[in-house]
Structure formats: structure tokens, C-alpha cells
Design a protein around this nucleic acid. Sequence first.
DNA 1: TATTATTATCGTAATATTGCAATATAAAAT
DNA 2: ATTTTATATTGCAATATTACGATAATAATA
Lengths: 107, 107
Amino acid sequence: MGASKTHIFSTTHNELAQIAKVLAHPARVAILEYISRQENCICNDLVDVIGLAQPTISQHLNEIKKIGLLKGTFEGKNLCYCINQERWEELQHSFNAFFTNINYNCC
Amino acid sequence: MGASKTHIFSTTHNELAQIAKVLAHPARVAILEYISRQENCICNDLVDVIGLAQPTISQHLNEIKKIGLLKGTFEGKNLCYCINQERWEELQHSFNAFFTNINYNCC
DNA sequence: TATTATTATCGTAATATTGCAATATAAAAT
DNA sequence: ATTTTATATTGCAATATTACGATAATAATA
């Protein structure tokens, strides 16, 4: 078929996978890092910095937004994207919990 | 086009994305968790537990193997998959570094 | 109001992923 | 040697993702 059978998996597993999917593209990793480093939060140079077309950047931003990682406000004529700190820490904890819960019983 | 332009991104960003991609499917998250919980490391019931066809499970295992997360040895007639502890901790550190390096300058 | 600058959406093509039936392979048991 | 049991590979169909040109929407500026 081709579509993921999400309904046969637990909510926890689906949620972790969904978050990982957002980080599963180098452009989105780069975008997150870049936004976090901008002091003034003016992000209209993302297109130049990343090197993808403007509609593509917009799509990637939308994927990041979907899991609640971005807050956007207006500052003059430019849209200002910032990282949602609370959500970011939430995701960090989810990942960390997953990583630390794995134990190594054999081999 | 459709293919990711990996060449325009840094090695760090590409590697993190590649790892995230493996975790970006609930079946693979579930598989990793299940394997880690099996004391005797006999994993031939993965097909029943996860609920996907045997070739599909095999493919997912292969994706996990590709990033070095699995060690496999034989025990009797059954193939025994275990988590590669060193690699696992390596990935945990990569993710943690990424998460903690992000700062929140604005908004 | 017209222009300019910036971001969003639409439409579409190329590529990747997911899933499984059929089949192959490998090792143990009969 | 043949059967059984478990995993891997192949081939293919369905769906998802990635990317961008064209265009729309939005807001500041002239």
C-alpha cells in the first residue's frame, strides 16, 4: 500500500515518530538552529541562508509549526519566527525518556 | 524534483536528520522498545507483536541496522537482535546536544 | 492608491517510503 | 534427504515527501 499503519501503534510511539519526522530533514534541522541563533528574530533571510526556494522554506516552516515548535509574531513588515521554549523542552524530555528507557539485556 | 538536497547541508545536520528518519516511524520505535525489553533476546515474535507482515518487519529492522543500532548474533535457530549500546548512547548524546544548544532569544 | 517586500498557497513533477505477496535462503529437526 | 521454521530479498502498487514556478495574500512605504 504505502501509507503508515499508524492505528496499530500506541499514541506514545506515534507521537515520538511524528516529532522525529520533523527533525528527519536537514533543512528543518538547519532552520531550527538558525532561528535559535538570531538575536533579533528577523528571519526573512532564511531563503538565502538555507539555499532552498522560498516556497520550500515556507513548507518546512509549516512542518515545524505543526508540532508546536514555532511561535510567530510580526515586527514591522517581517514575520518573526521564534522557537517555542516550552514545547521545545517538552520534546527534549520525550526523546530523553525514550533514549534512557531502553535497556541492554543481552549480547 | 522531490529528492532532498543533502549536499547543501552540513554533515552534522545531515547525520542528525538521518538518525531522526529512522525514529520517524512508529513501527521502528516500537521495535526498538520491544527488543530492549526482551531478556533472552529472542526476537522472532516481532511479527506477531508489532502486527505487520514479515517482510515489512525485516525492512524496518534493516533501516535500524543501517545506522548501527543493532547487533545480531545467532542463538540456536533464531537470529538474535540486540541493541548496540555504544551506538545508542552516541545517538542519545547527539540528540541531547542538539536540543540543549538551541537558545531562545526572542518573543 | 500604486509600489515594493515578504510570506503563503496552488499545481505539478520527481523521488522516497511503506507495505505485502511471492519467493529465496539458511539452519535446525525429523 | 526432506520437512519445518525463521529471516531476507524481489517486485510492485499505493501513498508521502520534497522541491519549485506561478500566483495570491498581506502589510509597509512612497
